[in-house]
Simulated assay, not measured.
Amino acid sequence: MTTFVRRTAALACVAVLAACSSNSGGTPGGTPGGPSDETSQPDFTDGQGISAVVLPQIAAPGDSAEKSTDADFVVDVTIEDAQAGREVELQVPDGEDWTTEDTGETDAKGRVTLTVAQPGELRVVSGGDTPVGVNLSTDEVPASNFADEFDQLDPAVWGTRDQGYAGVRLCSRASDEAAEAVDGVLRLSVLDDPDKGACREKSKPYAYRLNGHIGSAYSFTYGYAAARIKFQPLRGQHGSFWLQGFGAEPTGDAKVTGAEVDIIEYFGDDHPQGGLTSFIYWHPTAKGKTAGGWLSDPEQFGDDWSSKFHVFSVEWTPEKYVFRIDGQVTNEITQGVSGVPEFLILSLLSSDYELQQLGGDDKLPQHMDVDWVKVWPTPAA
């Protein structure tokens, strides 16, 4: 792919994400005392056998557009040696007591994801024979240095990528006409190309298509990137949120050459494999390698990808990528980890191999709506 080359320097990260356990169990601020009657939780030993970290605001399923600052913070909890099904509570201060904000049960690895809407002090507690807990704060979350709410499509930030009638898309090209800000969202579309006739794929005629396909002038290295998206309903095109390094795709270690990071791709409501993928592409040799694949059992994260917004995110560290939907981990990949600046891409692409899946050109246009995109960078450890 040809890369959109305009860029700006990333701003410095002003906060570092780190788990903490600064206070003992009891009332807010570490004052000795038991938990509130509302929570029915016993006193706990702080930090022993439990770890938790507060992630950015990357959970916001819903019908309507909303600001990125209205999304929920995510708390990722692991309890050592916990069996699946152990109940865990996320609590917030309520005067001199604590009240429960969210509950969940550990999976087979002792892990559970909880959410909280309001910033401030938090604690995670779990009962049982040996009650455990940890005190946290949303102040631990790194500061965002890039956010776009798409009140307008700023040409100084986003540009249509140079992709047209080539490669796997001989029947489509990127176009400014297929990317616009509409009612506070970015609308990416697949449209008929009015200036061309029919394109033939496997001897069948199809209308030439215009694709919404934009790249950012902003780039970063390591951190969290998230977008709140409502995807297109039909097959025949795929919506994507992804990262890519600048320049050509050189051969070598991804730490030096970069990688394509497909945070999420969606291939339509009726796709037999559920429609959702996350992939990494890099080139240790000329042949190239991939990691990732179709999300198994996507129904556990939702089944309304074209009727509701969801937040799709990646946590990119020097060691791995962690992919999430509304804060729930969908995949972790330790291969092909890029170590160079990557920029953001949002696209709705109609590749030639999927044209026949649409069911007729009369079903165009198709639309993918992006409510917002946001990045919280973190420095390498």
Rank of each mutant, 00 (worst) to 15 (best):
G95F: 10
Y218Q: 12
A82R: 08
V92I: 15
T277Q: 14
L11F: 09
L349P: 00
V168H: 02
L355I: 15
K204N: 14
Q366F: 12
Y266T: 11
Q328V: 13
K204A: 12
G268Y: 10
G49K: 03
L170T: 07
V157D: 09
D102E: 04
G212F: 12
F4C: 00
V337W: 10
R235L: 08
A226W: 00
G339C: 03
F343V: 02
A59Y: 07
L344E: 06
V141I: 08
E201V: 15
D107T: 07
Y224I: 08
E201T: 11
V256W: 01
Y165F: 15
G110R: 02
V112Q: 09
N145K: 12
S175P: 07
D37K: 07
N23D: 10
V92N: 04
D76F: 12
P272I: 04
E121D: 05
E149V: 14
T27E: 13
L210H: 08
I214R: 07
Q273E: 15
V370H: 02
E105I: 10
P32N: 04
S189A: 10
K320G: 01
G85R: 06
P32A: 07
G360Y: 00
D151K: 14
V132P: 09
S68D: 11
T285F: 10
E38W: 10
T39G: 14
T285D: 15
G159H: 14
T113V: 15
F267L: 04
A19S: 15
T103A: 07
D72N: 08
E342R: 03
S172E: 01
T115Y: 02
G339A: 03
I229K: 01
G293H: 03
D162K: 15
Y222D: 07
D262C: 00
L355T: 14
Q118L: 02
E96N: 12
T45A: 15
Q273S: 15
T100W: 02
T27F: 13
G239T: 03
A254I: 09
F150L: 14
G26T: 13
Q273K: 15
A179C: 08
H238E: 04
V190S: 04
L348S: 11
S296H: 05
A18W: 05
K109A: 10
Y224M: 13
G159S: 10
V112A: 09
D361P: 08
V261K: 13
P56Q: 01
K196A: 11
F343W: 06
D70T: 13
R228T: 02
A18I: 07
R228D: 09
V340A: 09
P28W: 14
Q300H: 00
G29F: 01
G274V: 07
D304C: 04
L153T: 13
L243E: 04
T99N: 01
S296F: 00
V14D: 04
Q57F: 00
E177T: 09
G245L: 00
G25E: 09
A65G: 09
V168I: 07
L17F: 02
A286P: 00
F231N: 11
G159V: 13
T285G: 12
D195F: 05
Q163E: 12
G258R: 12
D362F: 06
V375G: 03
F220P: 06
S219Y: 05
A179T: 12
A12W: 00
F220G: 04
G293Q: 02
A286G: 01
S175W: 05
W158E: 11
G359W: 06
S172A: 10
K374D: 05
P318C: 01
L191W: 01
I50K: 06
